Simulated scan of single mutants.
Amino acid sequence: MKPYPLLFQPEMKERVWGGRALEQFGLELPDGPIGEGWMIGDHPNGTTKVANGEWAGLGLDQIREQYGREIFGSKGFSEKNGRFPLLIKLLDCQDDLSVQVHPNDHYERLPEGELGKTEMWYVLDAKPGAKIIYGLNEGVTREQLAEAIAQNRVLDCLREISVEPGDSFYIPAGTVHALGAGILVAEIQQNSDSTYRLYDYNRMGLDGKPRELHIEDSLNVIAYEGSGATYMKTDLAAANQWLALAESPFFITEKGQVDRPWKLHTNGDSFVIHIICDGTGELSWADGTIAVKRGECYLIPANLGQYTLSGSMTVLRSYLP
């Protein structure tokens, strides 16, 4: 079967901090506060199914099993568990998220087959005054943080940053972080659902019970000497050029503005993921053309070869290093 750009039916996740903002992308949401749309996923906690073309109805796990090497590329598998290596999400934060940290691949208390979690955020929208927590204040040690937790003053140890649409944050494993209320983000991450909560504002979960904290694991995996986290404004100097947002051992993510036909290509090493951040346009390849719009996330097969983006839109491009 000839390869083509794959669009998936998202897996929606109810979260105590979520809302209904993902409806603005034309997505169908179940009832309740929806915090996460898993747009491209191959994980035991959520596997997306193809929504377009001849492979419609196949899960990403089935694509992996039947056509993985051709579609994902020679680098396109996790060395640890053999799965698709990335998880692509849209997050709607109507309330503050828990203060959390993620382990790396080598943490000995990870569940069998689970990966660590290095990720990045691209801010699609943010209400005036919206903020995130992004790392510890300078000089905070494990002992000082543990004492602050015991005394219920952990927020005194955390760095807070105001955010605007277009901001980009790279969040390596070991970075303490939390999205704040009023923020909509695209998230590119390792294919992992490993999160350790450090603090959750004494909040009740969807079941009416206090949400679980993971203090010991959090203290174990935090990078107290710095994780390599970076953030940036992403104003583009010109159209049809890529601006590097994140370069990690697990993914590279770039931003570009399409305003005229832009010829691109894949090779056999890696798939490419495009997230349409705003605007509309078309994605064309040798065998077809599809209309694309804001909020859609496409998996471009490693063996597709040449393709073209056209129209007027801002896109993210992610691939494996």
Rank of each mutant, 00 (worst) to 15 (best):
K2Y: 11
K2C: 12
P5G: 04
P5S: 05
F8W: 13
F8Y: 14
Q9I: 00
P10M: 00
M12K: 07
W17A: 02
G19S: 11
E23V: 00
L29V: 02
I34T: 02
M39T: 03
M39L: 08
D42A: 07
G46F: 02
K49R: 12
K49H: 14
W55Y: 15
Q66A: 15
F77A: 03
F77P: 01
P85L: 00
L86W: 03
L90H: 10
D92T: 04
S98G: 09
S98P: 09
S98W: 10
Q100S: 08
P103S: 01
Y107M: 04
R109T: 09
P111C: 05
G113A: 09
L115C: 08
T118D: 06
T118H: 12
E119S: 08
A126K: 13
A126E: 07
K127E: 14
P128Q: 01
A130Q: 05
I133Y: 07
G135D: 08
E138H: 15
G139W: 07
G139T: 11
V140R: 08
Q144E: 15
L145Y: 07
L145V: 08
Q151C: 14
C157N: 11
S162Y: 15
D167M: 12
I171A: 06
P172M: 01
G174V: 04
G174R: 12
T175D: 06
V185C: 02
E187L: 07
I188T: 13
I188K: 02
N191Y: 03
N191L: 01
S192R: 13
S194W: 08
Y196C: 10
R197Y: 00
L198P: 06
R203H: 03
R203C: 00
K209T: 06
E212L: 05
H214C: 01
N220L: 07
V221H: 11
Y224A: 01
A229T: 07
K233H: 15
D235T: 10
L245S: 03
S248A: 04
K255G: 02
G256V: 04
G268Q: 13
F271K: 02
F271L: 05
I276Y: 08
D278Q: 07
G279K: 06
L283E: 06
S284H: 13
W285D: 09
V292L: 07
K293S: 11
E296W: 00
Y298S: 01
L299Y: 10
A302D: 12
A302L: 08
G305D: 08
Q306G: 10
L309K: 13
G311H: 04
M313Y: 14
M313V: 02
V315M: 03
L316A: 06
